[in-house]
Amino acid sequence: MRIELQDVEYRYQVNTPFERLAIHDVNLVIEPGTYTALIGHTGSGKSTILQHLNGLLQPTKGKIQVGDRTIEAGKKEKQLRPIRKKVGIVFQFAEHQLFEETVEKDICFGPINFGVPEADAKLLARDALKQVGLGEEILGKSPFDLSGGQMRRVAIAGVLAMEPEVLVLDEPTAGLDPRGRKEIMDMFYQLHQERGISTVLVTHSMEDAARYADEIVIMHKGTVYQKGSPNEVFSQPEQLVELGLDVPDTVRFQLRLQKEMGVRFDKPCLNIEELAMEIKRVMKWGERS
Protein backbone atom coordinates (compact mmCIF):
# COMPACT_ATOMS: atom_id res chain seq x y z
CA MET A 1 0.00 0.00 0.00
CA ARG A 2 1.27 3.41 -1.00
CA ILE A 3 1.09 6.42 1.29
CA GLU A 4 1.54 9.95 0.03
CA LEU A 5 1.54 13.19 2.00
CA GLN A 6 0.95 16.34 -0.05
CA ASP A 7 1.67 19.77 1.40
CA VAL A 8 0.62 18.58 4.80
CA GLU A 9 0.36 21.01 7.66
CA TYR A 10 -0.79 20.32 11.19
CA ARG A 11 -1.54 22.81 13.93
CA TYR A 12 -2.33 21.74 17.45
CA GLN A 13 -5.23 23.42 19.28
CA VAL A 14 -6.29 25.67 16.39
CA ASN A 15 -8.08 28.89 17.38
CA THR A 16 -6.90 28.79 20.96
CA PRO A 17 -4.12 30.75 22.63
CA PHE A 18 -2.15 27.48 22.61
CA GLU A 19 -2.19 27.10 18.82
CA ARG A 20 1.10 25.66 17.66
CA LEU A 21 2.36 24.78 14.20
CA ALA A 22 3.80 21.27 14.43
CA ILE A 23 4.50 20.41 10.78
CA HIS A 24 4.19 22.30 7.50
CA ASP A 25 4.73 21.73 3.76
CA VAL A 26 5.44 18.05 4.26
CA ASN A 27 5.66 16.11 1.01
CA LEU A 28 6.52 12.49 1.36
CA VAL A 29 5.86 9.24 -0.48
CA ILE A 30 6.12 5.84 1.12
CA GLU A 31 6.17 3.31 -1.69
CA PRO A 32 4.85 -0.21 -1.05
CA GLY A 33 7.43 -2.60 0.37
CA THR A 34 10.04 0.04 1.24
CA TYR A 35 11.83 0.69 4.52
CA THR A 36 11.89 4.36 5.50
CA ALA A 37 13.65 5.88 8.50
CA LEU A 38 12.34 9.15 9.89
CA ILE A 39 14.94 11.03 11.91
CA GLY A 40 15.18 14.40 13.61
CA HIS A 41 15.24 16.03 17.01
CA THR A 42 12.59 15.69 19.65
CA GLY A 43 10.05 18.30 18.57
CA SER A 44 10.98 18.20 14.86
CA GLY A 45 7.56 16.82 13.93
CA LYS A 46 8.30 13.09 13.56
CA SER A 47 5.57 11.94 15.92
CA THR A 48 3.02 14.28 14.37
CA ILE A 49 3.71 12.81 10.93
CA LEU A 50 3.47 9.33 12.30
CA GLN A 51 -0.01 9.97 13.66
CA HIS A 52 -1.14 11.13 10.23
CA LEU A 53 -0.15 7.85 8.61
CA ASN A 54 -3.19 6.02 9.94
CA GLY A 55 -5.59 8.88 10.40
CA LEU A 56 -5.12 9.47 14.12
CA LEU A 57 -4.58 13.11 13.16
CA GLN A 58 -6.19 14.88 10.23
CA PRO A 59 -4.11 17.56 8.49
CA THR A 60 -5.10 21.19 8.96
CA LYS A 61 -3.87 21.80 5.39
CA GLY A 62 -3.02 19.51 2.49
CA LYS A 63 -3.98 15.88 2.03
CA ILE A 64 -2.86 12.34 2.61
CA GLN A 65 -3.44 9.41 0.32
CA VAL A 66 -3.40 6.09 2.16
CA GLY A 67 -3.92 3.32 -0.39
CA ASP A 68 -7.17 4.25 -2.17
CA ARG A 69 -8.37 6.48 0.64
CA THR A 70 -7.81 10.24 0.74
CA ILE A 71 -7.81 12.21 3.96
CA GLU A 72 -8.12 15.92 3.35
CA ALA A 73 -7.95 18.99 5.51
CA GLY A 74 -11.31 20.50 6.37
CA LYS A 75 -13.40 17.43 5.54
CA LYS A 76 -15.25 15.30 8.04
CA GLU A 77 -13.54 11.96 7.81
CA LYS A 78 -15.51 8.92 8.86
CA GLN A 79 -14.79 5.22 8.76
CA LEU A 80 -11.06 5.42 9.24
CA ARG A 81 -11.08 1.96 10.72
CA PRO A 82 -9.95 0.13 7.55
CA ILE A 83 -6.90 2.40 7.40
CA ARG A 84 -6.03 1.69 11.00
CA LYS A 85 -6.17 -2.02 10.31
CA LYS A 86 -3.79 -1.69 7.37
CA VAL A 87 -1.35 0.71 9.03
CA GLY A 88 -0.21 -0.68 12.37
CA ILE A 89 1.64 1.60 14.75
CA VAL A 90 3.98 0.30 17.42
CA PHE A 91 4.22 3.24 19.80
CA GLN A 92 7.18 4.04 22.01
CA PHE A 93 7.18 1.90 25.17
CA ALA A 94 4.40 -0.18 23.63
CA GLU A 95 4.23 -2.35 26.75
CA HIS A 96 2.56 0.53 28.59
CA GLN A 97 -0.54 -0.19 26.52
CA LEU A 98 -0.96 -3.78 27.68
CA PHE A 99 -4.15 -4.05 29.70
CA GLU A 100 -5.81 -7.46 29.42
CA GLU A 101 -5.82 -10.32 31.94
CA THR A 102 -3.92 -12.70 29.69
CA VAL A 103 -1.40 -12.43 26.89
CA GLU A 104 -3.84 -14.18 24.55
CA LYS A 105 -6.68 -11.73 25.23
CA ASP A 106 -4.35 -8.80 24.82
CA ILE A 107 -3.09 -9.91 21.42
CA CYS A 108 -6.62 -10.85 20.28
CA PHE A 109 -8.05 -7.47 21.27
CA GLY A 110 -7.04 -5.72 18.03
CA PRO A 111 -8.23 -8.34 15.55
CA ILE A 112 -11.55 -8.87 17.41
CA ASN A 113 -12.04 -5.13 17.47
CA PHE A 114 -11.69 -5.16 13.68
CA GLY A 115 -14.34 -7.87 13.37
CA VAL A 116 -12.24 -11.05 13.23
CA PRO A 117 -14.10 -14.02 14.82
CA GLU A 118 -12.62 -15.07 18.15
CA ALA A 119 -11.41 -18.47 16.97
CA ASP A 120 -9.51 -16.89 14.06
CA ALA A 121 -8.13 -14.18 16.31
CA LYS A 122 -6.66 -16.86 18.56
CA LEU A 123 -4.89 -18.40 15.58
CA LEU A 124 -3.54 -14.99 14.62
CA ALA A 125 -2.34 -14.51 18.20
CA ARG A 126 -0.37 -17.74 18.10
CA ASP A 127 1.19 -16.81 14.79
CA ALA A 128 2.06 -13.30 15.98
CA LEU A 129 3.60 -14.64 19.17
CA LYS A 130 5.83 -16.91 17.12
CA GLN A 131 6.91 -14.00 14.93
CA VAL A 132 8.10 -12.04 17.95
CA GLY A 133 10.01 -15.05 19.24
CA LEU A 134 7.84 -16.03 22.20
CA GLY A 135 6.40 -19.46 22.98
CA GLU A 136 2.72 -20.40 23.31
CA GLU A 137 3.19 -21.30 26.96
CA ILE A 138 2.80 -17.65 27.91
CA LEU A 139 -0.63 -17.25 26.25
CA GLY A 140 -2.42 -17.89 29.53
CA LYS A 141 -0.14 -15.70 31.65
CA SER A 142 -0.85 -12.19 32.76
CA PRO A 143 1.20 -9.80 30.60
CA PHE A 144 2.19 -8.04 33.81
CA ASP A 145 4.04 -11.10 35.11
CA LEU A 146 6.45 -11.01 32.16
CA SER A 147 9.85 -9.33 31.97
CA GLY A 148 10.09 -5.90 30.36
CA GLY A 149 11.50 -7.31 27.12
CA GLN A 150 8.77 -9.95 26.89
CA MET A 151 6.07 -7.35 27.54
CA ARG A 152 7.42 -5.26 24.68
CA ARG A 153 7.24 -8.29 22.38
CA VAL A 154 3.68 -9.12 23.41
CA ALA A 155 2.64 -5.54 22.66
CA ILE A 156 4.29 -5.80 19.24
CA ALA A 157 2.52 -9.13 18.64
CA GLY A 158 -0.77 -7.30 19.28
CA VAL A 159 -0.02 -5.02 16.33
CA LEU A 160 1.23 -7.84 14.07
CA ALA A 161 -1.93 -9.87 14.74
CA MET A 162 -3.89 -7.24 12.82
CA GLU A 163 -1.84 -8.24 9.76
CA PRO A 164 -0.95 -4.69 8.77
CA GLU A 165 0.41 -3.87 5.31
CA VAL A 166 2.37 -0.95 6.71
CA LEU A 167 4.20 -1.07 10.02
CA VAL A 168 5.09 2.19 11.73
CA LEU A 169 7.64 1.87 14.53
CA ASP A 170 8.19 4.70 16.99
CA GLU A 171 11.54 4.09 18.73
CA PRO A 172 10.69 0.40 19.14
CA THR A 173 13.85 -0.51 21.04
CA ALA A 174 14.12 2.35 23.55
CA GLY A 175 15.16 1.10 26.98
CA LEU A 176 16.17 -2.40 25.85
CA ASP A 177 19.64 -3.85 26.34
CA PRO A 178 21.92 -4.17 23.28
CA ARG A 179 20.98 -7.78 22.56
CA GLY A 180 17.25 -7.07 22.93
CA ARG A 181 17.61 -4.11 20.60
CA LYS A 182 19.30 -6.12 17.91
CA GLU A 183 16.83 -9.01 18.17
CA ILE A 184 13.81 -6.73 17.80
CA MET A 185 15.32 -4.75 14.92
CA ASP A 186 16.32 -7.94 13.09
CA MET A 187 12.80 -9.31 13.62
CA PHE A 188 11.20 -6.25 12.02
CA TYR A 189 13.65 -6.42 9.14
CA GLN A 190 12.81 -10.05 8.57
CA LEU A 191 9.07 -9.27 8.51
CA HIS A 192 9.80 -6.49 6.07
CA GLN A 193 11.72 -8.78 3.75
CA GLU A 194 9.67 -11.96 4.00
CA ARG A 195 6.21 -10.43 3.97
CA GLY A 196 6.93 -7.27 2.04
CA ILE A 197 5.55 -5.11 4.84
CA SER A 198 6.34 -1.44 4.27
CA THR A 199 8.16 -0.19 7.32
CA VAL A 200 8.49 3.31 8.69
CA LEU A 201 10.97 3.59 11.53
CA VAL A 202 11.10 6.67 13.73
CA THR A 203 14.47 6.61 15.46
CA HIS A 204 17.29 8.55 17.07
CA SER A 205 19.71 5.80 16.14
CA MET A 206 21.62 6.70 13.01
CA GLU A 207 23.17 3.22 13.10
CA ASP A 208 19.75 1.63 12.68
CA ALA A 209 18.72 4.14 10.03
CA ALA A 210 21.90 3.43 8.06
CA ARG A 211 21.68 -0.33 8.50
CA TYR A 212 18.04 -1.00 7.66
CA ALA A 213 16.50 1.84 5.67
CA ASP A 214 16.23 2.24 1.89
CA GLU A 215 15.40 5.89 2.36
CA ILE A 216 16.14 8.29 5.21
CA VAL A 217 13.93 11.31 5.78
CA ILE A 218 15.37 14.03 7.97
CA MET A 219 12.88 16.27 9.74
CA HIS A 220 13.89 19.69 10.97
CA LYS A 221 11.68 22.39 12.46
CA GLY A 222 8.46 20.78 11.31
CA THR A 223 9.32 20.03 7.71
CA VAL A 224 11.35 17.65 5.54
CA TYR A 225 14.92 18.92 5.51
CA GLN A 226 16.46 16.22 3.37
CA LYS A 227 15.69 12.76 2.02
CA GLY A 228 17.68 10.14 0.23
CA SER A 229 19.46 6.82 0.54
CA PRO A 230 21.74 6.38 3.57
CA ASN A 231 24.73 6.94 1.27
CA GLU A 232 23.32 10.21 -0.04
CA VAL A 233 22.23 11.52 3.35
CA PHE A 234 25.49 10.70 5.11
CA SER A 235 27.71 11.95 2.29
CA GLN A 236 27.32 15.45 3.74
CA PRO A 237 27.67 14.70 7.42
CA GLU A 238 28.76 18.25 8.31
CA GLN A 239 25.24 19.49 7.59
CA LEU A 240 23.70 16.98 9.96
CA VAL A 241 26.19 17.81 12.68
CA GLU A 242 25.31 21.48 12.22
CA LEU A 243 21.65 20.66 12.81
CA GLY A 244 22.74 19.04 16.04
CA LEU A 245 21.91 15.57 14.77
CA ASP A 246 24.02 12.50 15.24
CA VAL A 247 25.71 10.68 12.39
CA PRO A 248 26.58 6.97 12.45
CA ASP A 249 29.64 6.10 14.57
CA THR A 250 31.58 5.20 11.43
CA VAL A 251 30.88 8.55 9.77
CA ARG A 252 31.64 10.47 12.96
CA PHE A 253 34.99 8.69 13.09
CA GLN A 254 35.71 9.50 9.44
CA LEU A 255 35.04 13.18 10.09
CA ARG A 256 37.40 13.21 13.02
CA LEU A 257 40.12 11.37 11.17
CA GLN A 258 39.84 13.73 8.19
CA LYS A 259 40.26 16.67 10.50
CA GLU A 260 43.10 15.35 12.62
CA MET A 261 45.06 13.29 10.11
CA GLY A 262 44.40 15.51 7.11
CA VAL A 263 43.25 12.63 4.92
CA ARG A 264 40.26 12.62 2.59
CA PHE A 265 37.62 9.90 2.30
CA ASP A 266 35.70 9.66 -0.97
CA LYS A 267 32.46 8.34 0.50
CA PRO A 268 30.74 7.73 3.79
CA CYS A 269 31.37 4.27 5.27
CA LEU A 270 28.29 2.80 6.87
CA ASN A 271 29.78 -0.29 8.45
CA ILE A 272 32.92 -1.05 10.41
CA GLU A 273 34.59 -3.45 7.95
CA GLU A 274 34.17 -0.96 5.13
CA LEU A 275 35.64 1.79 7.30
CA ALA A 276 38.61 -0.34 8.34
CA MET A 277 39.44 -1.00 4.68
CA GLU A 278 39.03 2.65 3.78
CA ILE A 279 41.33 3.72 6.62
CA LYS A 280 43.90 1.21 5.42
CA ARG A 281 43.58 2.64 1.91
CA VAL A 282 43.86 6.34 2.82
CA MET A 283 46.84 5.60 5.08
CA LYS A 284 48.38 3.69 2.18
CA TRP A 285 49.15 0.96 4.69
CA GLY A 286 51.52 -1.60 3.26
CA GLU A 287 52.46 0.53 0.25
CA ARG A 288 55.03 2.57 2.07
CA SER A 289 57.89 1.26 4.16
Binding site: T250, I272, E273, L275, A276, I279, K280
Partner: peptide
Protein backbone atom coordinates in the same frame (compact mmCIF):
# COMPACT_ATOMS: atom_id res chain seq x y z
CA UNK B 1 36.48 2.28 18.88
CA UNK B 2 37.27 -1.22 20.14
CA UNK B 3 35.25 -2.82 17.35
CA UNK B 4 36.96 -0.66 14.76
CA UNK B 5 40.44 -1.35 16.19
CA UNK B 6 39.70 -5.05 16.01
CA UNK B 7 38.61 -4.80 12.40
CA UNK B 8 41.71 -2.76 11.56
CA UNK B 9 43.93 -5.43 13.12
CA UNK B 10 42.11 -8.10 11.12
CA UNK B 11 42.88 -6.06 8.02
CA UNK B 12 46.56 -5.97 8.89
CA UNK B 13 46.82 -2.47 10.37
Amino acid sequence: SIKLAKSLRENGV
